[in-house]
């Protein structure tokens, strides 16, 4: 029902026969069009799956026929087997949970911080004029350079990785919150003023909800960034976690296992993304898609 445009002049249920026939023909034409669309949808779906199959076949065939060195690129089936054995190792759950924890905490704290600072910047222009130049300056720095510093400051444990994830994740939320709140149409503000709405009412009845679709796009980016932050933090110095495992297997030239860890990380990233995508569709139903 979301996409249905209701027409005030739509034919009423009681129709004369000629109009009824026309309506029937119209419905039939619409049904035909829908069937055709559904068929095209399937063609594209099959096409997309085929591309994936071709990539997997190449991945399997190239090392198999020695077109690339199997040590550099182990065949797909070998990676799949490495994944199968890796998840059964007794040490695996501990590494997985540590990294998941870093990602989720980093994502939540980063999102909260981005929201708070973004709202402050949008709502109080003096605050924006005072600190926005520093926010932009900070964003211009590639945050990865802080990773060794964070290890020095916060140690080899999870804290330094969480801080890294927060630092990378909070920025897209901040910018989108600020831009979203500032993009409230002038007429909507005027309407609320003409009703003598308080600034607080303007914020929670109009501005925040208006900004929410834009904020949520930032939140989705924040999750992906939190994954990057946690892994980079672990690369630089860690005793445990998936990033630590990946580094370890690289050094040991167990590339099949390294690939297996990458597959798991890709799965975490995708799961988070689709979970947020689902939440977006459910809660921000008015978004123009």
């Amino acid at each position: 029902m979301r996409d249905a445009v209701i027409d005030a002049n739509a034919p009423s249920p009681r129709l004369d026969p000629v109009k009824a026939d026309a309506a029937k023909a119209d419905a039939a034409a619409r049904e035909l069009r829908r069937q055709r669309e559904r068929r095209t949808d399937w063609y594209y779906r099959i096409g997309a799956i085929s591309i994936g199959v071709v990539i997997l076949l190449l991945w399997e065939a190239l090392p198999y026929f020695d077109l690339v060195n199997p040590i550099i690129l182990p065949p797909f089936t070998k990676v799949a087997y490495a994944l199968y054995t890796l998840v059964q190792q007794p040490f695996f759950p501990r590494h997985l949970l540590i990294t998941l924890n870093e990602i989720v905490v980093g994502f939540l704290v980063g999102t909260g911080l981005g929201l708070g600072v973004g709202i402050a910047l949008a709502v109080w222009p003096p605050v924006k004029r005072l600190i926005y130049p520093y926010v932009v300056g900070f964003q211009a720095i590639p945050k990865i350079v802080f990773a060794p510093l964070f290890i020095a400051w916060f140690g080899f444990d999870q804290i330094s990785k969480i801080v890294m994830a927060v630092v990378i994740a909070f920025f897209p939320v901040l910018i989108n919150t600020m831009v979203g709140l500032e993009s409230v149409p002038a007429d909507a503000r005027k309407l609320m003023r003409s009703m003598k709405a308080t600034p607080l009412q303007l914020f929670y009845k109009v501005s925040f909800l208006h900004a929410l679709p834009i904020i949520f796009a930032g939140v989705q980016a924040a999750f992906t960034f939190a994954v990057i932050g946690a892994i980079v933090g672990e690369f630089v110095g860690a005793k445990e976690g998936l990033g630590y495992l990946l580094n370890l297997y690289n050094f040991q030239l167990r590339i099949d296992r390294a690939f297996a860890v990458i597959v798991i990380l890709a799965g975490i990233g995708a799961a988070g993304f689709f979970l947020l995508e689902w939440a977006d569709r459910k809660f921000i139903f008015w978004r123009e898609r």
Partner: peptide
């Protein structure tokens, strides 16, 4: 300042 005795309508409907 705006008064509750008056209602305002714009060129755009400004619906939420």
């Amino acid at each position: 300042e705006p008064s509750h005795k008056m209602g305002f309508m714009f060129q755009t409907p400004v619906l939420l």
